[in-house]
Simulated assay, not measured.
Amino acid sequence: MPRSPLQMLDGLLGQEGMESAAHRFVLGGPFGAEPAEVSAARLAHFADAGGLLVETSHSYAKGQAEVAIGPWLRQNPGTLGVATKVGHDFTGADIPLSRDTVHGHVRAALRSLGVETIDVLLYHCDDPDRPVAELADTLVSLVEAGYVRRVGASNWPAQRLSALTAELAERGHTPVASYQFSLAEPDPAHLGGSLHADRAVLDVVGEHRLPLLAWSSQARGYFARTEPREINGRPDPYDTVDNRHRRRRCLELADQLGTRPETVALAWTLHHPQVWPSIGARTTEQIDRSLEARRLQLTDAQVGWLRHGR
Rank of each mutant, 00 (worst) to 15 (best):
L6C: 06
Q7M: 05
M8Q: 14
L27I: 03
G28V: 07
G28R: 10
F31D: 15
L43I: 06
L43N: 09
F46G: 02
S57A: 15
Y60A: 07
G63P: 11
G63C: 11
Q64T: 02
I69G: 00
R74G: 08
Q75H: 13
Q75L: 14
P77F: 11
G78T: 03
T79A: 14
V82G: 08
T84E: 02
G87E: 06
H88K: 10
F90E: 13
G92T: 02
H105N: 02
R111M: 09
T117D: 00
I118L: 04
L121A: 05
Y123H: 02
H124W: 03
D127P: 05
E134K: 00
L135V: 02
T138D: 14
S141P: 06
A145T: 11
Y147N: 13
R149M: 03
R149H: 10
N155T: 08
L161Y: 03
A163F: 03
A166D: 11
H173A: 08
P175T: 02
Q180I: 00
Q180G: 14
F181S: 04
S182Y: 02
D187I: 06
H190L: 05
H190Q: 12
L191T: 10
L195A: 10
V205N: 13
R209V: 08
P211M: 11
L213W: 12
S216M: 12
A224K: 06
P237V: 12
D239R: 00
N243G: 10
H245G: 00
R248L: 13
C250E: 12
E252D: 15
D255P: 00
G258E: 09
E262W: 06
T269F: 04
T269N: 09
P273L: 01
P273K: 09
I279L: 15
A281C: 11
T284M: 04
E285W: 03
E292R: 14
T299Y: 14
W305R: 10
L306S: 08
